[in-house]
Amino acid sequence: MMVRTKKSGKIVEMFGCFDGKVVDEREHLTIIFSPASLPIKWSNSSLTADFLAKYFEDFFPPLKEVDRERTVLTRDEVRDAINYIANELIENAVKFHYNPELEIVFTLQLDPMCLTFVATNSVDPKTMAQFTAFITEVTSYDPGELLIQHLETAAEVASTESGIGFLTIMSDYGARIGWKFETTQLKGAADKINVTTMVQLPIIKETFDGE
């Protein structure tokens, strides 16, 4: 599903499950990278994911205290999920960030029903069509089946642009993903596009029930 609006001179397009609500009161941590002054190395993604996983695991009970009837994730599982999802989102944000003068922003927030991951980076306008085609595919079919298809294709052509990370997040972790594109149209210059990727990882069993 795609929603398109225009506000303050910006075209905003949302795909998948994007929840625009911002709740400041909850446990949250935001890291803002400034690639123009501190270049982001490849290893910084895993360092950041590892830090976030250790930081947020403490808000979850250990296995022996977990109510398995209601809770989806134990402390160990939360650590593993945060590590994988945060690493995937930060790696993508860094890899596809187009304008080094702009910041890369990553937030992890603990909501009552889910952990919300939000990554924002700039995008090359020339790659938009390919990106939205991928999103349309991911949001239209069963992520489990798509993951198998993409794994087979990636193995055949040794591709690194397979989108397997997003499909794994949806299929193996049961998370919802949404994207928001904000396009600023400039006269006589290429559009400026920012993309925000949101992943909502359920931590309580009924989180996405009835949807």
Binding site: E27, H28, L29, I31, L47, F51
Partner: peptide, 26 residues
């Protein structure tokens, strides 16, 4: 010139003091 910015809720630090060390190390 900003190098790195971190914004967080103080609650997590008050209830989990080891977070201070973790954030500083990171």
């Amino acid at each position: 010139t900003p190098l790195l910015t971190v914004r967080f809720s103080a609650h997590g630090f008050a209830t989990q003091p080891k977070h201070c060390q973790q954030l500083a190390n990171y």
